[in-house]
Design a protein around this nucleic acid. Structure first.
Length: 447
RNA sequence: GGCCCUAUCGUCUAGUGGUUAGGACAGCAGGUUUUCAAUCUGUUAACCCGGGUUCGAUCCCCGGUAGGGUCACCA
């Protein structure tokens, strides 16, 4: 049994796509599990559409995801080899040069290379789907090179896979119908047939193909939203594969250990970002305190929280409230539960009293709280201390009656953390100011 | 349209010729709670349809239906 060699062959015509990333992951996992080699080949022969920016992105995102290639090939560096192979095929009469009108300009004549198609029925074995049979006669003598110097995709793929001794071609299901024609080229080239495994496709929630236009598809964009690479790979691994056990959370090493192509699903899977978010939260929770704080601090700065003292006190509560880093932006935006930290609230006087209670009651409680807070500056050392200070009073006078007005006065929002936490974050000065403001806005009942 | 692939809760999936068809995410309800979040508990929800084969089919076979893929001088 030769050593396993798998490959991922993206073309730099766009940012790394989530589907490509998943295919790469499966190739990577399979190779690693088998102790084989994972090859990355950049298919950059389309000079019109290939861009360095995209090539850089592909390398960058694979690195981020932890999908290190053992060998890297740049297809354009092998054009010489392709040319030789093409000449050989023509000299052996397995292919021929055909003068015909150009597709784009019928007046012009081009000399394309066509394969002599024996027109047989081709059956190949797919590790995931079993035997698949195609009749290749309808393919006719298909074009394998735009000219003797410009090989087309199918030819280049076959030549390169042969050159790199690829043993397992693991790719998306969309290539099933490309396989027979590639086998035809392979046979003309006298190359061994690799083992094929066609993975189910990843679909959008509306069950349509993941498209760049309609959906978020680049790995880069998920990264920018603040998803963690571990969450991405864990989630993608479970899209179309299952470990055969109820386990859902996997480190990369655990994925490598338990991965097998036998447990790959035949039907396509929908990319459910809600579940991705759940995975991300799991990994966020597992993050070390220091790492979390460092990252959170920079995200806070990005969200525009200027007051650094706030920022420091906000960090701990972020931990239980976010699933992905970008949630921070929404929390500090208007309507978010931490909006009170980005802007001074303007509480609606009508909403200050606890449900069914009067403004007078609210005033009374707010004043009582203010008095306690003024007298006990030390309580602002922690949310717990603030709670210890105010709780007995709240408990005695009705928690809702006391705590709702307090919380609302401090935040002016329907949702927020509890008033002790809020007061702690704001600090003594700001807390008293906000209570004062709310009090000033609370109408006093006419005598 | 031709050819090819596929079909278990809303989603990711486990599973078996006889099961209360299991788990996870989401949902819902409740506990906790001043609101929100978190958390705990409980819970709704699926074998695409029609024929066979069989004592018995979600499972095996055939047909249909639906979804997807592919039919380039793109990759």
């Amino acid at each position: 049994m030769p050593k396993v060699r798998t490959r991922i062959a993206p073309s730099p015509t766009g940012y790394l796509h989530i589907g490509n990333a998943r295919t790469a992951l499966f190739n990577f996992l399979f190779a690693r599990h088998q102790g084989g080699t994972f090859v990355l080949r950049l298919e950059d022969t389309d000079k019109e559409r290939s861009k360095k920016e995209y090539a850089d992105d592909i390398f960058e995102q694979f690195k981020w995801l932890g999908l290190a290639a053992d060998e890297t090939y740049i297809q354009s560096e092998h054009v010489e080899r392709h040319r030789e192979l093409l000449h050989t095929l023509v000299s052996e009469d397995k292919a021929y040069i055909s003068s015909e009108p150009a597709k784009d300009d019928p007046i012009k004549t081009v000399e394309v290379v066509r394969l002599r198609n024996p027109g047989r029925s081709i059956t190949f074995h797919d590790l995931i789907r079993g035997d698949i049979t195609f009749d290749t006669t309808e393919l006719k003598d298909f074009v394998i090179a735009r000219s003797i110097d410009e090989p087309l995709y199918h030819f280049a793929v076959v030549a390169d896979d042969g050159e790199a001794d690829i043993t397992h071609v693991i790719r998306g299901e969309d290539h099933i119908s490309n396989t027979p024609r590639q086998i035809l080229i392979q046979e003309a080239l006298d190359l061994p047939r690799p083992i094929y495994a066609h993975l189910p496709l990843i679909m959008a929630p509306d069950k349509t193909k993941l498209s760049k236009r309609k959906h978020q598809t680049s790995v880069k964009s998920f990264r920018e939203l603040g998803f963690l690479p571990e969450a991405m790979t864990n989630f993608m691994a479970l899209l179309g594969w299952n470990p055969g056990t109820p386990q859902e959370l996997f480190s990369m090493q655990e994925l490598i250990d338990s991965f097998s192509l036998e447990n790959v699903q035949k039907s396509s899977a929908i990319f459910d970002i809600v579940k991705l978010r759940w995975f991300n939260r799991e990994y966020l929770n597992r993050m070390g305190e220091d790492d979390f704080q460092t990252e959170a601090a920079s995200r806070l700065a990005h969200a525009g929280i200027q007051e650094s003292a706030y920022a420091e006190r906000l960090l701990p509560i972020l931990r239980e409230r976010i699933e992905v880093w970008s949630d921070i932006d929404a929390m500090f935006a208007k309507g978010g539960e931490l909006f009170f930290a980005s802007e001074t609230p303007r509480p609606d006087p009508a909403k200050i009293p606890w449900k069914g209670e009067s403004s007078d009651a609210a005033r009374k409680h707010l004043e009582a709280c203010r008095a306690m807070l003024e007298q006990t500056p030390d309580a602002f050392q922690s949310a717990e201390a603030l709670k210890a200070l105010l709780w007995p009073y709240a408990d005695e006078n009705g928690r809702g009656s006391v705590l709702w007005p307090l919380r609302y006065a401090l935040t002016g929002a329907d949702k927020s953390p509890d008033p002790f936490t809020v007061a702690y974050i704001l600090g003594r000065e700001e807390t008293l100011t906000r209570i004062g403001t709310a009090l000033a806005r609370t109408p006093i009942k006419a005598q």
